[in-house]
Amino acid sequence: MSNSISKTIINLFVTFFKIGAFTFGGGWVMIAMMEKDIVDKHKWFTKEEFIDNLAIAQSMPGILAVNMAVLVGNKMAKKWGAFLSALGTILPSFFVILTIAIFFTTINDNPIVERIFKGIRPAVVALIIAPVFTTAKAAKINLKNFWVPVATALLITFCGLSPIMFIALAIVYGVSRCYLNNKQTKTE
């Protein structure tokens, strides 16, 4: 293994370990953190790549944050990159939960913990709102296609529809649009 590759792998592991250790509130918060580190800081993905890979990660079964880590790691350093990125994402929560499972049963009754989390929870919502704006820019949202993210968000949130359905619809639309364009250029 060359020196620069092993350096990248260590970097991947450390980055995802940090993200795994500091995200309370589940997968989407981790995605918000990943955007900051992967796109802005390390430039492992462009903004567009980040969104495309997020769509792949979301369309696959399993844990969103781990799927995303695998995609980033695989792009930067193949299989080992994928493995260590996934491991970095998993390990912090594994150790924390194992400790809780072995030693505590009622962490949620602690008043100090409860106060701290009362502050963290609304902030976590803000952390997820922020990438809506950055990804909207990268996805080239304009007045004409504005309705797509709005309708998607409202239907998922208030009608309980599955996000996968919307990705499937977009795939069908993308393929047929390309097919029709091809046909048009051929007949001209």
Binding site: E48, I51, L54, A55, P131, T135, V148
Partner: peptide, 9 residues
């Protein structure tokens, strides 16, 4: 897909 992902977030 991209606009859909924005809606998902």
């Amino acid at each position: 897909i991209r606009p859909v992902v924005v809606g998902m977030i």
